[in-house]
Write a protein that binds this DNA or RNA. Sequence first.
DNA 1: CGATTGCTTGAGTGTCATCAACTAGAGTGG
DNA 2: CCACTCTAGTTGATGACACTCAAGCAATCG
Lengths: 252, 252
Amino acid sequence: MSALQSNRFNSKLTSQCQSCSLSALCLPIALADEDVNRLDQIIERKKPLKKGEVLFHQGEEFSSVYAVRTGTLKTFNITNNGEEQITGFYCPSELVGLSGIDNNIYPISAKALETTSVCEIPFSHLESLSNQIPSLKSQIFKVMSRKICDDQQMMVLLGKKNADEKVASLLMNLSGRFKRRGYSAVSFRLSMSRGEIGNYLGLAVETVSRVMTRFQKNNIIQVNGKEVTIIDLPAMQKLVGIAEDCVRIDTV
Amino acid sequence: MSALQSNRFNSKLTSQCQSCSLSALCLPIALADEDVNRLDQIIERKKPLKKGEVLFHQGEEFSSVYAVRTGTLKTFNITNNGEEQITGFYCPSELVGLSGIDNNIYPISAKALETTSVCEIPFSHLESLSNQIPSLKSQIFKVMSRKICDDQQMMVLLGKKNADEKVASLLMNLSGRFKRRGYSAVSFRLSMSRGEIGNYLGLAVETVSRVMTRFQKNNIIQVNGKEVTIIDLPAMQKLVGIAEDCVRIDTV
DNA sequence: CGATTGCTTGAGTGTCATCAACTAGAGTGG
DNA sequence: CCACTCTAGTTGATGACACTCAAGCAATCG
């Protein structure tokens, strides 16, 4: 809690990272104040992306990872037959672009779903800074490890779940992410279209639509366009599979 | 930690890592000789696992990552309703357990598909060694990044591909991995059962069986139990989607 | 040797994709 | 301000792909 008040001990120069409301969730977590300042210095705040603008393109040379400040991004892969497969949605404080490290090329594109601002973190700088700050290095390991966990959960979803369970899982996942950022866990706005939801979940648009209206008829959720309210939480948890305990799907 | 540094120079003796045939694929890649020796010293060779034995259990405290030396592992997640979802197969030189870093708990179990020997790499040692050897740290970043890429490819497979494409993708992926280790790319032995293939690909056993016999009838592959030979490579590539260029599915 | 396990093959069914029509809302331009 | 277009979303009808159930075969094992 108190960690949320990021500049409680701040003294002299408060870095932007320290005054950022996301610092408790983002990369600076677990860093000493002076280390946050050093991290802060390698970060570039870019001007916000408009809806539909691309942050980086699949195939482009990898240079930076990005932390979302406000708004939402989607990442996607263009498959051989030209269709797009969405691989993730990214909310504020989440890190995009880690998959580019391996081959020094982004294997996916990242596009803004709404007006979105990001912090650019040049990876070469981050890497050398991580030589000097072991806790930063550990933090990067953790972030990457979590991404691997999340992706594995996603595989379970795609491989084993039916349409109802898929949609419920996405909604509950988003709910959890909003909650952790201090927003309502039961009432929120979807920044992605039905088509994007379907693409992401491996479902047709029509199926997504049908599932959501059915959920609504059964008083499980309340839907109004992009506005969603979760009404019957137990029902949702049951659909997701309750035991979400040891696993935290983070980057949907 | 001091133990790490002690034998740094006593290494006219070739380390096991250096004499290991996998060194060009495994973690030591891109390390200087003396660094390989230091890495070598934190590694424990465990006695081989028999088929069906578990390397680590889901929920267990995380301590080490493991490199496969010989044999094959599968990792899997027990879902809420008790069924198992296989999340990956691991061949020699590949690293298992990275997903445990985040929460300090293994979110999956790892089990031997056949007699399998592994190198245990205690993560705390690896992490501190990576403070001293920047290229080792970079290498870990890369390995984790590649895992993220691979998992994303897997999502595409699960979300967009039909049964034929799924099976073809798995076979071609295994083919590539055998090839890189110097084995035949067209003729190899599956160490996993049909059931495990189906589980992994999000298909029923019967479907896997049917697809493979159909492939055989169409002279695309030759199957005899677990022995597989790829006959019509172009057909397979077409099924997979050819443009496997920029993406390398590594850890299936 | 029977028993068990893994794999294959067949028949029937169900879930979800596809195709198509329709509605609502946003943006455009006369 | 009102058609007009365009897109996103919804709903219905139909069908395909893959799952389930069931039976049989082959290989391994106690």
